[in-house]
Structures are given as structure tokens and as C-alpha cells.
């Protein structure tokens, strides 16, 4: 079997369709979430600087600190979320597709 025949066969399989559909949708959803979070943060600064400088409660710490730190934690978490689902779900699907193709 040539590689293009193999590719055509894989492409026709229901599992492959499922994998690409799910992963593409998941990947883009997270991408959009990340874009909104980051450019939201940048726009917040660009349009209303005073807001982030406002103290939280009556302390010295401004809203900018928890929001900035929160964005860092969000970035790491969302990356971890992708890995978590890929390990649990996408890898199993991929393995099934590869096994199927090898038959």
C-alpha cells in the first residue's frame, strides 16, 4: 500500500473523523479563550489604566497584581488542560487509528 492509499484509508475512518473534529474544536476553543484573556488584559490597560492601579480593599495591593498573576496562572492552566484531555482522550483515539491502519 502506498502512503497516499494509506492516508486515504485513514481519512475515511470514523475514528479519524472523530479525532480531528474533537481536537480541532477543542484547540480553537482554547486558542480563542487565550486570545480573549490576553488581549482583554492588554486592552484593559490601554483603555483604562486607572482601573488596574486601584487598590484591592483598603490595602496597598492593586487589582493589577492579582489580575496579572491570575493571567500567568491561567496561561499555565489552560496549557495543562489541553495536555490533560489529549493524554486521556486523543492519545487513545490516535492509537486506535494507527492500529486500524496497520491491519
Amino acid at each position: 500500500m502506498t502512503t497516499s492509499e494509506l492516508a486515504a484509508r485513514v481519512q475515511a475512518s470514523a475514528k479519524y473523523q472523530e479525532l480531528t473534529r474533537k481536537r480541532t474544536r477543542f484547540g480553537w476553543t482554547l486558542t480563542v479563550a487565550m486570545l480573549i484573556a490576553y488581549f482583554g488584559y492588554v486592552s484593559l490597560i490601554a483603555f483604562d489604566k486607572a482601573l488596574l492601579a486601584k487598590p484591592v480593599g483598603d490595602g496597598i495591593i492593586s487589582w493589577g497584581v492579582p489580575i496579572g498573576f491570575g493571567l500567568i496562572v491561567f496561561t499555565v492552566t489552560i496549557t495543562g488542560l489541553y495536555v490533560w484531555r489529549a493524554n486521556a482522550e486523543f492519545d487513545a483515539l490516535t492509537k486506535a487509528i494507527v492500529d486500524e491502519a496497520a491491519q
Binding site: 484547540g27 480553537w28 482554547l30 486558542t31 487565550m34 486570545l35 490576553y38 488584559y41 492588554v42 490597560i45 493589577g64 497584581v65 496579572g68 493571567l71 500567568i72 496561561t75 489552560i78 496549557t79 489541553y82 495536555v83
Partner: peptide
């Protein structure tokens, strides 16, 4: 902090 956040946010995009 604004500057450093900019250097971090590309990684998830690269991943996804």
C-alpha cells in the same frame, strides 16, 4: 509584569 506576560502567552497558542 505586563512585559513578561507578553513573553508567556505565546506558548498555549503554539501548543493548541
Amino acid at each position: 509584569l505586563i512585559y513578561s506576560i507578553g513573553f508567556l502567552v505565546g506558548w498555549p497558542i503554539l501548543m493548541f
